[in-house]
Amino acid sequence: MELNVANTVKWMTLANEKIQENKTYLTELDQAIGDGDHGINMARGFQEVEAKITATDYDNVSDLLKDVSMTLLSKVGGAAGPLYGTAFLKLSMAVKGSETLDFPKFKSGLAEALAGIKQRGKAEKGEKTLVDVWEPLVDYLNGQNSFNAAGFESVAKEAMEATKDLEAKKGRAAYLRERSIGHLDPGSVSSFYIFSSLAEVLKEGD
């Protein structure tokens, strides 16, 4: 695999497309166990991300990812803003200085991003948050020597679906305690869109 400026722009554009398409769905998921703004928050944030990065020329992936981070931080408005903002900032910092990302760099960058999310949200795996998608993916990548798009996407999908049976311990859904069981975690679903977009973009480029 190679993540360069061109396919990272594609990745974000596709993620934005999926989020816009599923804006209502994400909001419905958040209405069930939150405040019903996740679709709106993510749609606003990623719309701005696409606008920003398609209007800018980048020399390297790190600068691009930094702009993704800053835009999400400023524009999202809910918990997803500081969480995804931190994730993309850590990813950007981890790959600073490299024009493109190969698999080992991507792998360690994603691990740093996960650590950032956990630190920011004081969250661990099993608490029905987006950590429940990011951590299984990082674990999966650790056992791989090259990027397998289909495998990556299916791990993300399974992890996202597994949040349904969990009881929320962090975020707004935690206030509902056991009433949160039986619903997908909205942030895990939006994370799935982000990662399935990446898988699609990297699959094309094989």
């Binding site: 405040d35 703004d37 928050n41 400023s74 408005g77 809910g78 803003g81 500081p82 903002g85």
Partner: peptide
Amino acid sequence: GTEEGEIGTNID
């Protein structure tokens, strides 16, 4: 509130 005056928070 957010930039648009909606419910939420904004780092800026």
